[in-house]
Amino acid sequence: MDDLGRRLLDEFQRGFPLTLRPYADVAARLGVDEDTVLDALRALKDMGALTRVGAVFRPGSVGVSTLAALAVPEEHLEQVAALVSAHPEVNHNYQRDHRFNVWFVATATDRESLKAVIEDIEAETGLDVLCLPMLESFCLDLGFGLQWS
């Protein structure tokens, strides 16, 4: 990772310019040109370090979501994970080292749609989904201070 890549990831987690040429404004702050910034962001995306330039929403402010978990027998893990990920309403899906080993977040416009997604996943996998909706948030996602050492 070069210095430009690090600065892009570090200094632009919040307050990304809302201007007609935002990448040119980022470039000006970093003392390079617009194409250099765009190329660097594409490279960060290709290497997987950058998910996207985008918005993080306050939980519960747009649509309805839930964290959910499945206890999947090891031999069916790949298959079940693929079934879960295939739903467009599922935006995160992770394997964790626990009896409940598949953890995902599902988001929909309203309660009924969310319930339908969970029921589809239960029908497809033959497993009960443990739904753990959020009741209260104690910190906002304000970005992540990276340490490069």
Binding site: T51, R52, A55, V62, N91, H92, Q95, V102, V105
Partner: peptide, 20 residues
Amino acid sequence: RDILFSLRRFKQRGAIYRRD
């Protein structure tokens, strides 16, 4: 308490809401 380390990421993207 319990600690659940992630082993693998299957999917990560922004949420979409277009079903309705």
